[in-house]
């Protein structure tokens, strides 16, 4: 299949999944993260559904790690990759941003068509964050 077409279909299905699960709604995500408040555990089920589906399918697909061109230098597919300070620090910083806004990258991009100023500001700032990383750590 044409690589652009298959990527388009994947992005579309991914987005529909986020919309159906209401992960695109920051207030719902925050209610999931707010264990001490009126906790909404439903987003844990999104994770369960996704992990079971992908876990099962990738066993059938059987794609060796070396074949996967991971965007992040194989950090999440290479079993030999080490846990380092960057992984912990970066993930911790990401979590703080996620907790402040209720937005992670996918849902934020989906929100762009909702015409909300908050979504535009978040996505613009996120890309500035990407650029900041590129300028501080030389290339990607």
């Amino acid at each position: 299949m044409n690589l652009n077409l298959s990527a388009f279909i994947s992005g579309l299905v991914f987005g529909l999944g986020l919309v159906l699960a209401q992960m695109t709604n920051p207030e719902k995500v925050l209610a999931f993260l707010d264990i001490a408040g009126n906790w909404d555990p439903s987003l844990a089920l999104v994770m369960v559904g996704a992990l079971l589906t992908l876990g099962t399918l990738q066993r059938l697909i059987r794609k060796p790690s070396e074949q996967i061109q991971d965007t992040d230098l194989q950090t999440c597919v290479n079993p030999k990759a080490k846990i380092d300070a960057k992984l912990i620090t970066g993930s911790a910083i990401f979590g703080i941003g996620w907790g402040l806004s209720g937005f992670c990258p996918g849902p934020a991009l989906v929100s762009l068509t909702a015409g909300l100023a908050g979504g535009y500001v978040f996505v613009a700032a996120m890309f500035i964050g990407f650029l900041l990383f590129n300028s501080m750590h030389r290339g990607r």
Binding site: V19, Q22, T24, N25, P26, E27, K28, D72, L73, T75, C76, K86, L87, I88, T89, G90, S91, A92, I93, F94, G95, I96, G97, W98, L100, S101, G102, F103, C104, P105, A108, S111, A114, L116, A117, G118, G119, V121, F122, V123, A124, A125, M126, F127, I128, G129, F130, L131, L132, F133, N134, H137, R140
Partner: peptide
């Protein structure tokens, strides 16, 4: 499609920066 954003714009700008930088650093 329900999208409700309650956080102020300043907070969203800071959060976006943290999410952008943090996800790259953490891979």
């Amino acid at each position: 499609v329900q999208i409700q954003i309650d956080a102020p714009l300043v907070v969203l700008a800071v959060a976006g920066l943290l999410v952008g930088y943090g996800t790259r650093l953490g891979g």
